[in-house]
């Protein structure tokens, strides 16, 4: 028996409404939990630049939030290093909610640049500055956070992530052992020029005497170059802020802390 057109249309409408309600109901219920999961993920990544991965994985979600609230203070600056508090519509900007990937699509001058300050136990002195970076790997986006010591040039730690680098090759940028290679390297040279830190071609050489070079990734040179470009670009975008912050301190403006 062929069903009538009316039957088919009615059936389709009812099905659509039922499934639509089911899905929108689910997203209503799960929405807040998802938002929290995304927030936790961002905060974990930020903390990952200063904490050991093993230490971080031991913390429960609640502990991460509490630790973050206590130890991280954040703000947003623009390319000139000036603090930005409100967006074009006058709505207050929350640094954690600034989407680095979306900002990456704008011109560097128009982007928002969040800075996360890792505070000492007392909750006042800044121990390190955490700066988000974003760029292109071989296949897709790569991003991460770079933690700088208070001299704003020595790298305290980095954490990298990627969308779809080759597992076992480019994807190794997420390995703790690869990220550890960046520790103690310097962004600026003695004269204050931006040198950034560059992964070299090939792997297995010792670059401990060169403050601007790190051992490369064998078989993943393009990803390594992507990391280099990403670091260099973002360090130059943040250099105005870094200079400002530095001159402020040498000028005896301890208030900045």
């Amino acid at each position: 028996m062929q069903q009538s057109n009316v039957y088919i249309v009615t059936f389709s409408v009812i099905l659509t409404v039922v499934l639509g309600l089911l899905l929108s109901g689910t997203s209503q219920v799960l929405g807040p939990i998802q938002k929290k999961a995304v927030e936790l993920d961002t905060k974990k990544q930020i903390l990952g630049a200063v904490l050991e991965a093993s230490e971080l994985s031991k913390m429960s979600g609640e502990e991460v939030f509490a630790y973050y609230d206590k130890r991280i203070s954040s703000k947003v600056v623009n390319i000139k290093g000036e603090e930005v508090e409100k967006d074009e519509d006058g709505i207050a900007i929350i640094p954690e909610n600034v989407d680095i990937g979306r900002n990456y699509k704008r011109k560097p001058e128009d982007r928002l640049y969040p800075v996360f300050m890792f505070l000492a136990e007392n909750g006042e002195d800044v121990e390190s500055f955490i700066i988000p970076v974003y760029g292109a790997g071989l296949w897709d986006a790569i991003w991460g956070y770079v933690a700088l010591e208070t001299d704003l040039t020595t790298i305290k730690g980095v954490t990298f992530a990627h969308a779809s680098e080759t597992p076992g090759l480019g994807a190794r940028i997420t390995d703790a052992s690869v990220q550890a290679r960046f520790q103690g390297k310097r962004i600026f040279d003695e004269s204050g020029e931006l040198q950034s830190v560059n992964m070299q071609k090939g792997e297995g050489r010792d670059y401990s005497d060169d403050a601007h070079k790190v051992d490369g990734l064998s078989g993943a040179t393009i990803t390594a170059v992507g990391v280099n470009n990403m670091l260099k670009a973002y360090m130059s975008h943040y250099s105005a802020y870094i200079q400002k912050r530095r001159s402020g301190e040498s000028g005896g403006m301890a208030v900045l802390n």
Partner: peptide, 26 residues
């Protein structure tokens, strides 16, 4: 209705998959 059964099947599968995706995300 047999004439739209493929679409109905797809709609059901797609809804279930979206459900799984949302739960995983949360």
């Amino acid at each position: 209705p047999s004439r739209v059964r493929i679409i109905v099947q797809l709609a059901v599968i797609a809804s279930l998959v979206t459900l799984v995706n949302e739960v995983l995300k949360a």
